[in-house]
């Protein structure tokens, strides 16, 4: 039996942790976009990820659309679900308080999950990996090509969002809603449209996370809740509302899980992640990159 040096093991843990962390980061970004504009936590965020995977399965595997076409179709379908979520569950609420809106998203997540169960059934589904399943071996460290896709999409999402929020009028208008909705309304920004846009955007990012994850870990109808919890943890860790924080939080969470599973008792890896999360919140209640001054003005 060949030997397997410790350094290689460590690198392998890092690669795995970063990949899982990238998924958490994408979910966390989705949380942040909606939080920034509406101050609510969209607890159906994990359901977008689940839908991303399952819609892709239908479009790509069952309908046979090529990858390049199936990808935008899937993102569009899930974005539509995000839009419907806003129009059917969020906007009709007459006296919206942050709490009622959050509860509405809980209800929506249960409904989406139930519908997914009826449409796709309960068995898990697989997708072909985007560029094959032959692992890349770099000095004893194994990297699946799909890992690179996951991390690549995280980078693309991060760059895209930075450009969107800093360079476009629409993005700046959304940013304005996040800073002060009343002032934004006064300068003529349609806040309702911005809320709709935020749901659409975070659904789209959730879909991307789901369809890149599925070739690695399969997808079934009740995967959403767990991913939402991890993503929410990442968002809190990095500082709710901060995009760099979400990415940092996601990656840290993934790394802690992977390193503690590999080097400490693997049964307690979620516990280690939670302990670190609590410790960070104890020292910095606003998260690593969050700003306490800003959070004071938020309702939640």
């Amino acid at each position: 039996m060949e030997t397997f040096p410790f350094l290689n093991q460590l690198l392998q843990f890092l690669v795995t942790g970063l990949t899982v962390g990238a998924i958490y980061a994408m979910v966390a970004i989705g949380f942040n976009i909606i939080y920034n504009v509406t101050e609510i936590i969209n607890l159906a965020q994990g359901e977008f990820v689940m839908l991303g995977g399952l819609v892709m399965v239908s479009v790509h595997t069952s309908l046979g659309l090529p990858l390049l076409l199936a990808f935008p179709v899937t993102v569009l379908v899930v974005t539509l679900v995000g839009v419907l979520l806003d129009r059917l569950a969020i906007r009709p609420i007459r006296k919206p308080s942050v709490m009622t809106l959050i509860i509405a998203t809980v209800a929506a997540s249960i409904i989406i999950k139930g519908l997914a169960m009826i449409i796709w059934g309960k068995s898990p589904y697989d997708l072909p990996a985007f560029s094959g399943r032959t692992p890349i071996d770099i000095g004893g460290v194994i990297i699946q090509p799909q890992y690179l896709w996951v991390i690549g999409f995280l980078v693309a999402v991060a760059v895209g969002l930075t450009l969107f929020f800093n360079r476009t009028i629409l993005g700046k208008a959304m940013g304005a809603c996040a800073d002060n909705p009343d002032a934004a309304r006064l300068v003529g920004i349609n806040v309702r449209h911005m809320v709709l846009l935020s749901f659409a955007l975070s659904a789209a990012i959730g879909a991307v996370a789901g369809l890149t994850l599925t070739p690695i870990a399969l997808m079934d109808y009740d995967r959403g809740a767990m991913l939402a919890i991890k993503g929410f943890g990442a968002a809190i860790l990095g500082g709710l509302g901060s995009f760099p924080g979400a990415i940092l939080g996601g990656l840290i969470l993934g790394l802690i899980e992977s390193l503690s599973a590999g080097m400490l008792a693997s049964g307690y890896k979620d516990a280690y992640a939670l302990i670190i999360l609590l410790a960070v919140l104890f020292i910095r209640p606003s998260g690593i990159l969050g700003n306490l001054e800003v959070t004071r003005f938020k309702r939640f």
Binding site: Q9, T19, I216, A217, R223, S258, A261, S266, K269
Partner: peptide, 24 residues
């Protein structure tokens, strides 16, 4: 003697550790 959660997306870390012990 490794463990993982029912909804985990990846068990690479646990298997990497096992690989280090070189079992049959």
């Amino acid at each position: 003697d490794e463990k993982y959660g029912p909804k985990d997306t990846d068990m690479m870390a646990q298997l990497t550790k096992i690989k280090g012990f070189a079992p049959q």
